[in-house]
Simulated assay, not measured.
Amino acid sequence: MSRIVVVTGTDTGVGKTIAVAALAAAAVAAGESVLAVKPVQTGIAPDDSPDAGEPADADVVATLAGCATRELVRLAAPLAPDTAAEREGVVLPRVAEHVARIVDLARAYDTVIVEGAGGVMVRLDGGGGTLLDVAVLLGEWAPGGDLQVVVVCRPGLGTLNHTELTVEAIRGRGIEPAGLVVGSWPAEPGLAEECNLVDLPRGTGVPVLAVVPDGAGALAPAVFRDEAPGWFVESAAP
């Protein structure tokens, strides 16, 4: 049975995509077959559009980690998925449909990493379905601890409140988060960052699995894949 890792963030822009790439690269380095899935991508124009240019999250993960990726829905507006879909006249699949596709894809891989859009409560469909709903449904398909939910958080001021709120929301649905990934760790961390690295697991009761350095996404793919496993604490390596 595949291991399913659902990755959310405390907010948008916290380094979630690079964290997904790091998780995928570490799993590939451990000899696993890996698929990264992005159920809904917003803010990216279609590949054949004259406005196309910025790579989608799935493209970034594929380049950095060297794993298979799949994007299920793409919307051009840089907005929450349900709002972007409404503005573009698109009917989004319900989260149960996303889960069915992910489950079908998962049968061919050791690990499937599902990347959300923004925070855990962002609506992924027109019926109010969120990434939390995706995680709950995937947990029903992958019982016995094969579902993991990972929270990507910022290192600086404000992260304690945002991270604890996110963790509590996940626990409120009966899921214990597997761990935290600190995104964009500065080369010269200040007092707040150093203290937060201690206070994040203490305040949430959730371990820090990895610390991803700032600028990791700009590394050459070969360098990224070589260094990514070292960003994980020893006990959290795949």
Rank of each mutant, 00 (worst) to 15 (best):
R87I: 10
V182R: 06
G119R: 07
V73L: 09
V114N: 00
R94H: 13
I175D: 14
G203T: 11
G205T: 00
V73R: 03
C67M: 05
G203R: 11
T130S: 06
G31P: 01
G53Y: 02
E194V: 14
W231N: 00
S235Q: 12
A30S: 13
A236K: 01
L131C: 02
V120G: 05
V20P: 04
R107N: 13
P186N: 08
P177M: 08
V61T: 05
T204I: 07
D214C: 08
V6F: 14
T163W: 05
E193C: 03
C67H: 01
G116E: 09
V223H: 12
V181W: 00
D48G: 05
G9L: 01
L180Y: 11
G126A: 14
L35V: 08
I102T: 08
P39Y: 12
E176S: 13
G190A: 08
L147I: 13
A216H: 05
A76M: 10
C153V: 05
V198I: 13
M1A: 13
L105F: 15
L23Q: 04
L124Q: 06
L105W: 10
G215A: 06
G53T: 08
A169K: 13
A106N: 06
G43N: 01
T63S: 13
P207R: 00
V233W: 05
G128A: 11
A21L: 04
A228N: 02
T163K: 07
P177K: 06
E176A: 12
E115M: 02
I102R: 08
G129E: 03
G15Y: 02
D226Q: 14
N161S: 10
T204P: 07
G203Q: 10
E88N: 07
V34C: 09
S49V: 09
P186H: 14
R70Q: 07
T8P: 02
R94E: 12
V122R: 00
C153W: 01
P189C: 04
R74V: 08
N196C: 02
V37H: 03
V99N: 02
P221G: 01
G139D: 03
D104R: 09
P78N: 03
V34H: 04
A236R: 01
E86K: 15
M1N: 11
P155K: 00
H98I: 13
L157I: 14
D226A: 14
V14C: 03
A80E: 02
R87M: 15
T111I: 15
T42R: 00
L75I: 05
D146R: 14
L138T: 01
V212N: 04
A108T: 02
R3Q: 09
L200V: 03
D82H: 14
V91R: 15
H162Y: 09
D57L: 11
A68T: 09
T42H: 06
G172K: 02
L147H: 12
A236D: 01
L75K: 06
A236H: 07
G183N: 07
G190R: 07
S49L: 08
G116W: 13
T166W: 04
N196E: 04
A52H: 15
A236Q: 03
D199R: 09
I113C: 05
W185Y: 13
